[in-house]
């Protein structure tokens, strides 16, 4: 099996590697894993609370080249999107963009999971702060 040029490019020059403060209210963190290969992927998003736009995204992946490329691409794609738009990203689009072979489809699944998990974490934080905001208004 050989990697596509796009996978190699993301692998050699991963975009948005790093981490953000996971305790921050604007940051959503998704930590996911693929049992098929034992890979683990962390993806974080920073969301503008007024516009719900994802202003920044970071990732750190321990796994194969396809997993790194999938998560790198995922951070590129979510940036500038609203959280609802980001939830529309499907693993099949990642497969297509990176020309992943069938045995590496689970890497793209992992990236979609990571996006969803990060957004889920952010939403949970938003809901947790809501009742407090209502109380101050009252």
């Amino acid at each position: 099996m050989s990697y596509s040029d796009k996978v190699i490019d993301h692998y050699n020059n991963p975009r948005n590697v790093g981490s953000m403060d996971k305790s921050s209210a604007d940051v959503g963190t998704g930590l996911v894993g693929a049992p098929e290969c034992g890979d683990v992927m962390k993806l974080q998003i920073k969301v503008n609370p007024q516009t719900n736009v994802i202003e920044d995204a970071k990732f750190k992946t321990f796994g194969c080249g396809s997993a790194i490329a999938s998560s790198s691409l995922a951070t590129e794609w979510v940036k500038g999107k609203t959280v609802d738009q980001a939830l529309e990203i499907k693993n099949t689009e990642i497969v297509k963009e990176l020309a992943l072979p069938p045995v590496k489809i689970h890497c793209s699944v992992l990236a979609e999971d990571a996006i969803r998990a990060a957004i889920g974490d952010w939403k949970k934080k938003q809901e947790a702060t809501k009742p407090a905001a209502v109380q101050t208004v009252q």
Binding site: L31, V32, G33, A34, P35, V40, F62, D113, R116, A117
Partner: peptide
């Protein structure tokens, strides 16, 4: 999504 692998183990792995 229900993670196939439990979160505590994922943290440790990471």
């Amino acid at each position: 999504k229900k993670q196939v692998v439990p979160p505590d183990l994922l943290e440790e792995v990471f």
